[in-house]
Computed example of a mutant assay.
Amino acid sequence: MKKVFTIIVLWVAVVGSMTAAEPVKLLTYNIKGHGMTDSRLDDIAAVINAQTPDIVALQEVDNRTFIGIKHDYLSELAQATGMHSSFFALVGSYYGVGLLSKTEPLSVQTQSFDPSDTSKDKEARGFLIAEFEDFYFISTHYSLNADDRDTATAWAINFARKSDKTVFIAGDFNAQPTYRAMVTFKNNGFSILNNTSAYTFPADGPTSCIDMIISYCSELGQEYDVAETGVVTSVNGLTLSDVSDHLPVYVVIDPIEESGVNNATETREMRLVRTSGGFSLSSLQAESMVNLYAMDGTLVDSHWVDNGEEVCFPASCRNGLYLVQVKNGYQNSTFKYILNH
């Protein structure tokens, strides 16, 4: 009887681990690898470890010392964070994009893009594509040239559409959310997951959001909610502007349980996520109208928003309870929101 009991317990534990999906924390960080030193590498590891991410996209990985001697800094960073590492060299054999992950990828592939003849940015760009059980995670560093960004974006959209898994792309896009490449992504079914009102560059006084995590979910892909998102602005004992000229961005994604119905038009439950300045919405199936109402029914403000875009209350609003009404062609929800400046 004791042996039978042991077998049953082990079987339940294994099946549970295979079917119970857990939240995943994604992070992207341009580490300004030029002139890397051992001490700054230690600081980068401390920043990453403080966030306990599951997967990290890294840009400007430079496997050279300050005096130009080749040095495998990415492997040392992997050791310092207890993660697996992947590297895609785009300049020589030493400079490019990297990826860290707690779980070793099922496969890793790469795609590079040479600069166009008219581009002033002569650096090759590309994607480092890691496949995991339920999704692809892509690390990238986009060109400063808009046409070259368009080339990479077109390839990424085609890759995502052909994929049978959800695709996440994380990196330094060298473009703000309103720039052409990012608008093209959104017009082709991608969502920006992080709050783009939280700026990431430059680290010593951020004025723009160019570091982002975006996603595309096909009909066959696992759907995810955004449970939390943020920009890392402080780590104990460190001045982040001394570590890099970018701030790290993270998103916590939470798998949505399958309903057993494969229907692309099935209505999903949207979620409201509080941010430092207000709130954002996740799992929107289309651009949505957001109406803010006082409890006496007065319309306070209206916004058109997409996934991850922050909504802030007007400065004239007093602390108290408000109603947030969200509508699009597929969904209609109302949330209660307590404003406390």
Rank of each mutant, 00 (worst) to 15 (best):
A46S: 10
T298C: 07
S107P: 00
V273C: 09
S283V: 11
L238W: 03
Q79M: 10
F159E: 06
V47K: 03
Q222N: 08
L106T: 09
S75E: 14
L193D: 01
S333V: 12
T140F: 03
I213T: 03
C209H: 04
F159L: 07
I129A: 08
G16V: 10
G320A: 10
D301M: 12
S259F: 05
Q79L: 09
L193S: 02
Q222Y: 04
Q176F: 03
E131I: 09
E223K: 14
F5C: 11
R149M: 07
S139T: 12
G82T: 06
M270T: 03
G329E: 14
Q79G: 08
D134F: 04
F190C: 03
R268Q: 15
S282A: 12
L281W: 00
A124R: 15
N291C: 15
Y224A: 01
N174E: 03
G96L: 01
S282D: 06
N194S: 06
T233W: 00
T200L: 07
Q109H: 13
H246F: 08
V61Y: 01
L90V: 01
V56W: 02
T334Y: 04
N188E: 11
I7Q: 12
F132D: 05
A80T: 02
L247H: 01
K327N: 15
V4F: 13
S93W: 13
I169S: 00
G16M: 11
D43M: 12
L193I: 08
N194K: 02
T275F: 06
I7V: 14
I8Y: 07
V290T: 04
F335V: 10
G98E: 04
R64D: 05
V273N: 12
V24M: 05
R64T: 14
H34A: 10
